[in-house]
Amino acid sequence: MIDDLNHWMMTEGRCSGDPLKVAAQYCAKLIEAGVPLWRANISQRFANPLLLAWGVVWTPDGTEIYEITHARMLTADYVGSGFEYIFDKQQPLHKSLRDLDPATEHLSYLEFAEAGGTDYYATLLDYGDRSQHGCTFTTRSTQGFSPQHLEMIEATKTGLAAALEPMTMRKSSKSLLRTYLGDGPSEAVWNGTIRRGERTTVSAVVMFSDLRGFTALSDSSSEDDVFDALDGYFDVVVQSVEERGGDVLKFMGDGILSIFPIQTPADQNLQCQNAALAANGVLIGLAALNERRFGAGKPPLDVGISINSGQVSYGNIGSPGRLDFTVLGGAVNLASRIEGLTKTIGHRVLATTIVAKASPEHFTACGSHHVRGIAEPIDIFNLVDPDRQNDKNSG
């Protein structure tokens, strides 16, 4: 059985690209061999500044994938757990779940025991790049795991690692690209469609946001306070954009360029409305952030946002050995210049005519204004006050 399972993992399992299938097959074959599995958790570490790990949890009722952020490493979920033990001690952990002391045992052991678990085993998976990952196994058998059961788990780890390692590498690479490039561009780069000098042109609603007073904040605050302010501001903008189906393409200092792609002409009005709602969400989120900052004795943050619609092109530029992802186009340039008007017009969110006409309930006219690089003044519209929008929505 061991040789057959390892062979399947190294051949069909490795080529399947499906971690759910691999985990289900692995656990099913162990059960066929007599290992009384009730639950298995196979955790894989990410190479990603935001995400720490992903994994697969198998039970007789089904199999599911999860992800873990770096912040969770500092919580009680990890500290004192079986995963912490095996990474820290560099050795497996075999632990009975009977007669546990609620005052001293990790919450996960108590939860497994409460659900009927009797025995627990955690062990390391070693990959070819010398990275280490972990897996845990729980049983409800009254006899627990025997030494023979644990020997079978250890003997089949090589096959399991062989099957999951390429999936982990691909998932890490894709998540890293998405972290820095956003959904659409990262997919294009992964597929090899954006090489040096190539570009992709799409119709989109463009939203450009800029943190006001950033230079003064940088001059008057410590580096820790500046990074804390940027992280809070970025969190607010990215969350609001992504909640409305937008894609954050690029961070430019304290500026953020986002798009809401227009796949068909029928999407124009919808994406203009989504951009307006995203901008509104930024203002609401920033107000909540400033309340927390006020409580911590920190100065409030303010933002300028512009929304335009048109064609944008993105791609990789640079030398043969060093590339940078960039976004270009008239729609982007105009959005950037209109954002600069937020300082003089007195409204934090401004939009062009094409956006305001597609989303009239969200904007009101605020006159014609000169924009750098354009000979004639253009009509500018400002976002309706968030409180008034909330009143409309609640009515």
Rank of each mutant, 00 (worst) to 15 (best):
L334C: 07
D247R: 00
I42Q: 03
N280L: 14
D18G: 06
S306T: 02
G192M: 01
A155N: 02
G134P: 00
V282N: 01
S313A: 10
S218K: 11
L249M: 11
G134W: 10
N316L: 12
K250T: 05
T344I: 05
R212A: 14
L334F: 06
D231I: 00
D235H: 00
K95A: 06
T201P: 11
P185A: 06
R98Q: 15
S319N: 04
A103F: 08
V238Y: 05
V202C: 01
S108K: 05
V355K: 04
T139F: 03
E361C: 07
D18Y: 01
A53G: 03
R45P: 00
L107D: 14
G255S: 15
S173H: 08
A356Q: 04
V205G: 05
V327R: 08
F46H: 12
I194D: 00
T352Y: 06
S218T: 15
T11L: 13
D267S: 13
G304A: 11
H70T: 01
D101P: 13
T136D: 14
K29T: 00
D219Y: 15
Q389C: 09
H149Y: 07
T139K: 09
E154F: 07
A76H: 03
T136N: 05
L20K: 02
I307A: 04
A115M: 07
S81K: 02
R130C: 12
N274D: 01
A266Q: 11
G255F: 08
D210K: 11
R195G: 04
G295K: 08
D77A: 14
I2H: 04
V57A: 07
S220A: 15
G117I: 08
G318P: 04
T63V: 10
K157N: 09
V238E: 05
P49L: 09
K298S: 05
D4M: 15
P60I: 07
Y121N: 08
F137M: 01
G184T: 12
I354N: 11
S313Q: 10
P166E: 13
D126Y: 07
S218A: 15
R372K: 14
S359Y: 01
I86P: 05
L100N: 14
L164E: 02
H149C: 08
L328M: 11
G373L: 09
A287F: 15
K250D: 03
D228N: 12
D119S: 13
G192E: 07
A155H: 06
W58R: 08
K171F: 03
G281V: 04
L257I: 10
Q25P: 13
K392P: 13
S173F: 15
S359L: 05
E198F: 02
D101F: 13
D3M: 12
F227K: 02
A122R: 09
T156V: 07
A278C: 03
Q44A: 14
G346C: 09
R244E: 10
G321M: 09
D4Q: 09
L249S: 00
V238S: 06
R212E: 03
T11H: 10
M1S: 13
I31V: 14
T123I: 14
